[in-house]
Amino acid sequence: MTADHWTLIALLAASTLVLRVVGYVAGAAMLQSRFWQRVLDVFPGCLLTALIASALARGTPVDWIAAAVAVTVAITTRSILLTMIAGMATVLAAGTLL
């Protein structure tokens, strides 16, 4: 592990703690503001779709096929583990077949 790995852990730990403390101290007041309530509701989903997009933007056609399979499994099962297994199995199978 390098210093970068430890720095990432420290930054993540600090930012998560700050957000939890903000939630404890000011969360109720923030949730009374419709603006902040909307931002806090919508932002995580938007960021997740952006993360998926950033992975697929540099991905191969096999990754796009695996993503379609993963979306189907996620919709039907709602299971993180099953979706991961289905996505990885598709990449593995397509890599063997193509």
Partner: peptide
């Protein structure tokens, strides 16, 4: 990527 898809769901 698959984990993000499941979390988004």
């Amino acid at each position: 990527t698959a984990a993000f898809i499941a979390m988004a769901r």
